[in-house]
Design a protein around this nucleic acid. Structure first.
Lengths: 208, 208
DNA sequence: GACTAATGCGAGCGAAGGCTCGCATATTCG
DNA sequence: CGAATATGCGAGCCTTCGCTCGCATTAGTC
């Protein structure tokens, strides 16, 4: 077992730009046909680059997905920071849902390959692990938020509520993503209705 | 354009049994690795049969999926007949949900490749169409049921409610499927909670 | 038994796709 | 400038996988 330290060359600016453009191309292709059916040759040609060049920057197909996932993780981190901050803790439920759901929908719009990566059948333990962590992070933050609103509730109940809320979101996401205009708005209303009616008894700040 | 009429040989009993065992093997494999990553050679060897034998009975990989889908469609038909019959129309909401959700969960347990087929990335228009019809059938029946309970509601609202209910079900299904015992029961409770709280305002039979 | 049709085998064909390799060009640095 | 390094190319290697083909065996029919 030798330590497989791969010496990354010092990237020139040109190289960094190529990596970005390859990532964007990969994002497109993953979004269009899914991870499994995306071919590295297509990604390369989409970035107007030869296959050899692609492999100059990424050791294999999975590394590309990995890099994309890392980017997404970072964006998600920013999103969390702006969404899960304290001031929302005591807002009315409908406001709470708006301030969380809308940014997440926006994120998914701007990260078209996100679902493709989630659904990828053929992924290494590492990539699967990274995806898993993304989910758990969201779940944990949601649960923590719920906890602040319902400090007397059982942790277990809140954890389940968080998991269910995420599942609902993911279940309705494909419908929303494929719609436009009025219908899309209607689908979003429906998603919010599901969430608010479900969470109401668990989470609502009650006036007394 | 010649009419590509493929003359199916008259199957012997042995052949029919082989076809069944091939379908069961395919079901296993699809459920384990998904449609795309399932190889016909693996399916054949799982059925303890040579690749050639497999192709004796099914012209190609997709025909296997098609046959499975047809079987599932038939089972779904039976399930519909037993679940969407009139007597449920006026039951309390929680009863209604139990009598629909439980059989559907049971169906998904007994049809392990069902989700795999739904998620298959590479499928022909025909197979995609068949899947699409399955979804629409469920949605329509659900909507019709809702309509009987809330005849004064707008059709559009009911259609959306049906779509959302299905999306919720599909979103939570993976969680439920991967759990066992107490946790599984808990997840199912949560699914039913989501559905009943969401549907309550739309669908509940109110006593006056 | 003799003839036909169905069943069964498995080596291997052909295409697809991840990835490599030898070589050319561009950039950086002393 | 010259050496070292980074970037770039694209034909094609190698493996995987859907599927075929020639041939053997078994079942059904008269």
């Amino acid at each position: 077992m030798s330590s497989e330290k791969v010496v990354e060359p010092r990237r020139q600016d040109r190289g960094k730009q190529r990596m970005e453009s390859l990532l964007r191309a990969a994002e497109e292709v993953f979004a269009e046909v899914g991870y499994d059916r995306a071919t590295t040759n297509l990604i390369a040609s989409r970035a107007v680059v030869s296959p050899g060049t692609l492999y100059q920057f990424y050791p294999n197909k999975e590394a590309i997905a990995e890099a994309l996932a890392a980017q997404y993780a970072q964006e998600l981190e920013l999103l969390h920071a702006s969404v899960f901050h304290g001031s929302v803790t005591k807002a009315p439920l409908s406001t709470l849902i708006d301030t969380i759901v809308d940014p997440f929908l926006a994120f998914h719009r701007g990260a078209p390959a996100f679902e493709a990566l989630f659904l990828a059948a053929a992924m290494s333990p590492q990539l699967a692990g990274r995806i898993h962590v993304l989910h758990d992070t969201v779940a944990l933050r949601l649960m923590t938020l719920f906890e602040k609103r319902s400090p007397r509730a059982k942790q277990d109940d809140l954890r389940w509520a968080a998991e269910a809320a995420i599942a609902v979101f993911r279940g309705m996401l494909p419908i929303i993503a494929q719609l436009k205009g009025v219908k899309r708005a209607r689908a979003i209303r429906e998603l919010k209705a599901v969430l608010s009616r479900y969470l109401e008894p668990v989470i609502a700040v009650r006036r007394r």
